[in-house]
Computed example of a mutant assay.
Amino acid sequence: MTQTKCPKCSHTEFAEGTDYMRVKPLNNKLGKSSEKIYTFCLGCGEVVSTRIENPAIFRK
Protein backbone atom coordinates (compact mmCIF):
# COMPACT_ATOMS: atom_id res chain seq x y z
CA MET A 1 0.00 0.00 0.00
CA THR A 2 1.41 3.37 -0.97
CA GLN A 3 -0.17 6.08 1.10
CA THR A 4 0.36 9.59 -0.25
CA LYS A 5 -1.81 11.68 2.06
CA CYS A 6 -3.26 11.09 5.53
CA PRO A 7 -7.09 11.00 5.41
CA LYS A 8 -7.30 12.78 8.77
CA CYS A 9 -4.71 15.61 8.60
CA SER A 10 -3.37 15.52 5.00
CA HIS A 11 0.23 15.01 6.20
CA THR A 12 2.39 13.11 3.70
CA GLU A 13 4.98 11.32 5.88
CA PHE A 14 4.33 7.82 7.19
CA ALA A 15 6.20 5.21 9.24
CA GLU A 16 5.74 1.55 10.12
CA GLY A 17 5.82 -0.09 13.51
CA THR A 18 4.58 -3.05 15.52
CA ASP A 19 3.16 -3.52 19.00
CA TYR A 20 4.82 -6.94 19.47
CA MET A 21 1.46 -8.60 20.13
CA ARG A 22 1.63 -11.50 17.73
CA VAL A 23 -1.39 -12.89 15.85
CA LYS A 24 -2.06 -16.64 16.08
CA PRO A 25 -4.53 -18.88 14.23
CA LEU A 26 -7.66 -19.46 16.34
CA ASN A 27 -7.47 -23.22 15.90
CA ASN A 28 -3.76 -23.48 16.89
CA LYS A 29 -2.94 -20.98 19.65
CA LEU A 30 0.30 -22.74 20.58
CA GLY A 31 1.63 -22.90 17.03
CA LYS A 32 3.26 -20.34 14.79
CA SER A 33 2.41 -16.67 15.01
CA SER A 34 3.05 -13.49 13.04
CA GLU A 35 3.53 -9.83 13.89
CA LYS A 36 1.12 -7.06 12.94
CA ILE A 37 2.66 -4.19 11.00
CA TYR A 38 1.03 -0.77 11.33
CA THR A 39 1.48 2.08 8.86
CA PHE A 40 0.75 5.39 10.52
CA CYS A 41 0.88 9.12 9.86
CA LEU A 42 3.83 10.97 11.38
CA GLY A 43 1.73 14.12 11.60
CA CYS A 44 -1.22 12.96 13.71
CA GLY A 45 -0.60 9.27 14.43
CA GLU A 46 -3.61 8.01 12.46
CA VAL A 47 -3.18 4.32 11.59
CA VAL A 48 -3.87 4.00 7.87
CA SER A 49 -3.01 0.30 7.45
CA THR A 50 -2.63 -2.86 9.51
CA ARG A 51 -1.19 -6.00 7.92
CA ILE A 52 0.08 -9.41 9.00
CA GLU A 53 3.79 -9.93 8.38
CA ASN A 54 3.51 -13.63 7.53
CA PRO A 55 -0.03 -14.52 6.36
CA ALA A 56 1.10 -17.93 5.10
CA ILE A 57 0.85 -19.41 8.62
CA PHE A 58 -2.93 -19.09 8.38
CA ARG A 59 -3.24 -21.34 5.32
CA LYS A 60 -4.59 -24.80 5.98
Rank of each mutant, 00 (worst) to 15 (best):
M1S: 14
M1I: 11
Q3N: 14
T4V: 06
T4G: 05
K5T: 02
K5Q: 02
C6W: 00
C6D: 02
C6L: 00
P7H: 13
P7N: 13
K8S: 08
C9E: 09
H11T: 07
E13R: 06
A15S: 11
E16G: 04
T18R: 08
D19R: 11
D19E: 12
Y20M: 09
M21L: 12
R22A: 11
V23R: 04
K24Q: 12
K24R: 13
K24I: 09
P25I: 01
N27P: 00
N28P: 06
N28W: 05
K29A: 10
L30K: 15
G31L: 10
K32N: 12
K32Y: 09
S33D: 15
S33T: 05
S33V: 02
S34P: 01
S34H: 05
S34E: 01
E35R: 13
K36S: 10
I37N: 00
I37L: 08
Y38I: 00
Y38H: 04
F40C: 02
C41F: 02
L42H: 00
L42V: 00
G43V: 00
G43Y: 00
C44I: 02
E46G: 06
V48E: 04
V48L: 10
V48R: 13
V48I: 13
S49V: 01
S49T: 02
S49Y: 03
S49P: 01
T50A: 11
T50H: 04
R51Q: 11
R51C: 04
N54D: 12
N54K: 14
N54H: 13
P55T: 09
R59D: 04
R59Y: 05
R59I: 07
K60P: 15
K60L: 12
